Computed example of a mutant assay.
Amino acid sequence: MRWLLTALLVIWCSAANAIPVRIKDLVDFDGVRGNDLVGYGLVVGLDGTGDGLRNAPFTEEMLAGLLERLGTNVSDDAMRSKNVAAVIVTATLPPFARSGSRIDVNVSTIGDAKSLLGGTLVMTPLKAADGNIYAVAQGSIIAGGVSVSGEAARVVEGVPTGGTIPVGARVEREVEFDFGEVRNIRLALRNADFTTAMRVEDAINREFSKPIAVAQDSGTVLVEFRNLGEVNPARVVGRIENLLIEPEDRAKVVIDHKAGTIVMGERVRISRVAVSQGNLTLKVSEAPLVSQPNPFAHGETVTVPRSSANVTEEPGIGFAEVAGNTSLSQLVEGLNALGVRPRDMIDILKSIHAAGALHADLVVQ
């Protein structure tokens, strides 16, 4: 079975010797965020790998509209091109993006096009959730795959129906946000924790020698600029985001059942518990016997089924007692010494958690 060959990877995340982390890597600043953009456009210049216009009428309609706007009127019967594909274009407008700046875009087919290799995106407006156009995309597509086909076979490497255009869109409209008028800002912790929020508050107040920060809850720290007098908010945030703190973490065990990977935190503890585990293997084999009549005799060939079944119980680890307040590293070290296999170790950890002896959040993917 595949899981027998799967390597077990155990990673201990040490919290005792925590490494200081910048506040900017732990929080998001309220209001300082990107905006998602989306558009619908055409890719031209494909080498016969575009949409079949009869199977994708939206591509045909859009191509006819594009040619009409360019002063060319083409009847439906004259459209037989396979070098055009309809696509969805997505991008993220970064915070404080100004008119004329460039952003990256992603391009994905929505019809039956086989590849975007060598294609060029025609001018495509990109809209935000409010319906306004904030950017316009155009340029050559860099696709991430290869597609080769013949009369009776086709080989696809990667995903050639999607690609990117680096700096392929130009910002045409700015998001109105005057950061200089901000009088307070909230810091949203990406991993909510009361201890981490308290440490962020203490670090900010210590840096400015004034109580300008207050932890409102486990995921939010409010910073009041008015307590500093007349200041530039951008300079204050620049000082805050580079402060170093030691983030707190929850005891957690993450199990990837398919890959046989276990990631564990150093803070995980196990109460006193006894563990017993064994394996039962059932093997059934077929060895049919063919019976034939003698030459020139009346009769027919008959296949006689012959089956053999064998049940083997492999020796388990018996009852192994785990002492109280055992660290996870000690438990894994002991299980490895007993020759416990990856799948078995995952099952043991799940059973210990079900028994209430594993003091950690168990996440099974």
Score class of each variant (00 low, 15 high):
1 M>I: 00
3 W>Y: 12
4 L>E: 07
5 L>Q: 08
10 V>Y: 13
17 N>E: 09
19 I>A: 10
29 F>T: 05
32 V>N: 00
33 R>F: 06
36 D>K: 11
37 L>C: 07
44 V>D: 13
48 G>R: 14
48 G>M: 05
52 G>Y: 13
54 R>I: 00
55 N>M: 05
57 P>M: 05
64 A>R: 15
65 G>A: 13
67 L>H: 12
69 R>A: 03
73 N>I: 06
77 D>R: 15
78 A>P: 08
86 A>H: 10
90 T>C: 04
91 A>I: 03
94 P>T: 00
98 R>L: 08
99 S>E: 09
101 S>Y: 07
105 V>F: 14
108 S>A: 14
115 S>F: 14
116 L>C: 04
116 L>D: 07
120 T>G: 11
124 T>C: 01
124 T>V: 00
126 L>P: 06
132 N>F: 14
132 N>D: 07
133 I>W: 14
134 Y>A: 01
136 V>P: 02
139 G>D: 05
140 S>T: 04
141 I>C: 04
142 I>S: 11
144 G>A: 02
145 G>I: 02
146 V>C: 02
149 S>E: 10
151 E>H: 09
160 P>E: 06
163 G>W: 09
165 I>Q: 09
169 A>R: 07
171 V>C: 04
171 V>Y: 03
172 E>D: 00
179 F>C: 04
179 F>E: 03
181 E>N: 15
182 V>T: 10
185 I>T: 11
186 R>M: 06
186 R>N: 10
190 R>H: 08
190 R>N: 08
192 A>R: 12
192 A>G: 04
193 D>S: 05
194 F>D: 01
199 R>W: 10
202 D>H: 09
204 I>M: 05
205 N>Y: 12
206 R>D: 15
215 A>L: 06
218 S>K: 15
224 E>V: 14
227 N>S: 11
228 L>I: 06
228 L>E: 09
230 E>Q: 09
234 A>F: 09
238 G>M: 06
242 N>W: 12
247 P>L: 05
253 V>E: 06
254 V>Y: 11
255 I>C: 06
260 G>A: 05
263 V>C: 03
266 E>P: 01
267 R>K: 15
267 R>C: 00
269 R>V: 06
275 V>D: 01
278 G>M: 05
279 N>P: 04
281 T>P: 07
284 V>R: 10
286 E>P: 08
288 P>Y: 11
293 P>A: 00
296 F>P: 00
299 G>C: 06
302 V>F: 11
303 T>I: 08
303 T>M: 07
304 V>L: 13
305 P>R: 13
315 P>S: 08
318 G>E: 07
319 F>D: 01
319 F>Y: 15
320 A>P: 02
324 G>T: 00
326 T>H: 00
329 S>Q: 12
330 Q>L: 06
332 V>T: 04
333 E>G: 12
334 G>C: 07
335 L>S: 04
336 N>Q: 09
336 N>T: 05
338 L>W: 08
338 L>T: 02
339 G>E: 14
341 R>M: 09
341 R>C: 02
344 D>G: 02
345 M>E: 13
354 A>K: 15
355 A>N: 15
358 L>T: 01
358 L>Q: 03
358 L>R: 03
359 H>Y: 09
365 Q>E: 12
